[in-house]
Write a protein that binds this DNA or RNA. Structure first.
Lengths: 205, 205
DNA sequence: GCTATAATCGGAGGTGCCTCCGTTTTTGAA
DNA sequence: TTCAAAAACGGAGGCACCTCCGATTATAGC
């Protein structure tokens, strides 16, 4: 939030009776896409006017679709979580179960790295509207569980661990302090976790 | 924070070798005073330009004294905590110990009520600079302890409770959700606490 | 294809943030 | 008292936020 005296926003996304008009829908998609890049690059307070400009629409259009900065952050956030979770299925189809798990966790780290910049907006969102997070964190847990279960069944990782434990470890990564080499450190940590998981698995390495 | 692309602020209050020039000191005091009212009335993002205007100085002067909004919030906050704690001694001098304690807790509630508006700035401050809070919360604890100890010694409240317990209860008030009748509810709660404290005291009521 | 109309666009405008720097004031040493 | 240097003042300027509403455009029914 920045503007001084304005009252708290209450505008909620009215459920459209009729589908979005074709141009509107196009613009909206473009805005979300551009915003994703902008937030990743410049953090959670990238200029909304820049985003509108890059998407080739007026600032008014941006605000009609997303009444507040947080609305936009939320959509971007949700879209990326969905992407991350979809990638889990994709990875599982094309890799050995343990490799899929390893790769997915690395992507998780990258994903979190991108989100650190918008931490502040996400926090505001969290206070206002925590159901979004309930949904999305549920999705992440589900994706992780499928990968872990597959790898356990396959015998490529040990069976005395469950996905909740692993999620706990990954959460720790999220809340670690924001040092310059955070990303590298986290990637090493994930490697370490994977080694631990493979050690003592039924299937020899 | 609102401005988009600006880098994080690092400016710290340089410790002045020489005392502030007379006019500067006057302006600074006036700014803090006006800011106190403004934050209480309009919340933590009252317009800084308004504050400067009301204090009769230019916006540049405000920013020279307080490089960020949070600096100003911090000073106001600290000043008010000090006032609250000083009031404890004052109350103790002019009232019976239990009355002093009761009154002080009510003032604590009022004080918190005023601060709810600036919760967001305080949170940012807290992340950046939590030593301020360590100091001030220590002061509050100390003030409360003196009042409680005096009332216990005097026999006007029961002795099987300590000031830390009471502080815990008061903290609960702080974190309660922000309903419209928050203040009234909290005042009643404090009354209730006081009744509990007096019940079973050595000295009959 | 044509048109009425509902939906959408887009940018001007008012406000706030913060910085920068020329101008003014205070200070203290002569 | 005088005056040069140091300190402080203050507002213009550039950018961003968000709102409002006249202009534009897609859509549905004919």
């Amino acid at each position: 939030m920045r503007k001084g005296t304005s009252a708290p926003k209450e505008a909620r996304e009215a459920k459209p009776i009729r589908p979005l008009r074709a141009d509107a829908s196009r613009n909206r998609d473009k805005l979300v896409e551009v915003a994703g890049h902008a937030f990743a690059e410049k953090g959670g307070n990238a200029s909304l006017e820049d985003i509108a400009r890059q998407a080739g629409v007026g600032i008014g259009t941006l605000y009609r679709h997303f009444p507040t900065r947080e609305h936009l952050v939320e959509i971007v956030y949700r879209r990326e979580v969905e992407g991350l979770c979809a990638a889990a299925d994709e990875l599982a189809r094309h890799n050995a179960p343990d490799a899929a798990l390893a790769e997915w966790m690395q992507r998780f780290v990258d994903y979190i790295a991108a989100k650190r910049g918008m931490a502040n907006s996400l926090r505001i969102l969290f206070n206002a509207n925590s159901e979004v997070f309930a949904n999305t964190s549920g999705m992440v847990a589900h994706a992780l569980r499928k990968l872990v279960d597959a790898a356990v069944s396959d015998g490529s990782i040990r069976s005395d661990i469950n996905s909740a434990d692993l999620l706990q470890a990954l959460s720790g990564i999220y809340s670690a302090p924001d040092t310059p080499d955070w990303r590298e450190q986290s990637r090493r940590l994930v490697s370490l976790l994977m080694d631990g998981l493979r050690w003592g698995a039924r299937k020899a390495m």
